[in-house]
């Protein structure tokens, strides 16, 4: 495993080897048609260490972070978290911060799950 895959595994807490290639994640994904690499393929890309292609993929920004795939995956693989982690790799590479943590409390909405906020920050700043 390359350093980058290890990093993805660490950030996401996901073990891609648990995937049984059933495709339920891709069957659940509302952005499937927008993606060049499909949710079930994220897992295979990481399994075979092709992180470059994954981080260059537009899928990272097409994922809605709805976590339907995370919810429904029968093997607890959580492909949505893998995309989340890959996205973070890209962010870390460039080291750009548009929002300082101090500004967050003012933006918080009680009703919104924090997980979703985090994902949205990462995605829509580009």
């Amino acid at each position: 495993m390359s350093k980058q895959s290890e990093l993805i595994a660490e950030i996401s807490g996901v073990n891609p080897l648990k995937c049984m290639k059933c495709g339920k994640c891709s069957a659940s994904c509302p952005s499937f048609n927008e993606m060049d690499i499909k949710p079930h393929q994220f897992v295979s890309y990481i399994q075979r260490d092709d992180i470059e292609a994954l981080t260059a993929s537009k899928s990272l920004y097409k994922c809605l972070s709805c976590f339907a795939c995370v919810e429904r995956c029968p093997r607890g693989v959580k492909p949505g978290k893998l995309i989340d982690a890959a996205r973070q790799l890209v962010l870390r590479q460039r080291g750009q911060e548009y929002l300082s943590p101090d500004e967050v409390p003012a933006l918080l909405d009680e009703e919104t799950p924090q997980q979703l906020l985090m994902s949205a920050f990462r995605k829509y700043r580009r």
């Binding site: 290639k21 059933c22 495709g23 339920k24 994640c25 891709s26 069957a27 659940s28 994904c29 499937f32 499909k38 079930h40 393929q41 339907a68 429904r72």
Partner: peptide
């Protein structure tokens, strides 16, 4: 491939959202 969702429709039918992995 698997089915992600079955959504009952107002006309009484069922919308099945699945994936064909061989066709991607």
């Amino acid at each position: 491939g698997q089915v992600g969702k079955v959504a009952p429709q107002p006309d009484g039918s069922l919308l099945v959202q699945g994936v064909d992995l061989l066709d991607n």
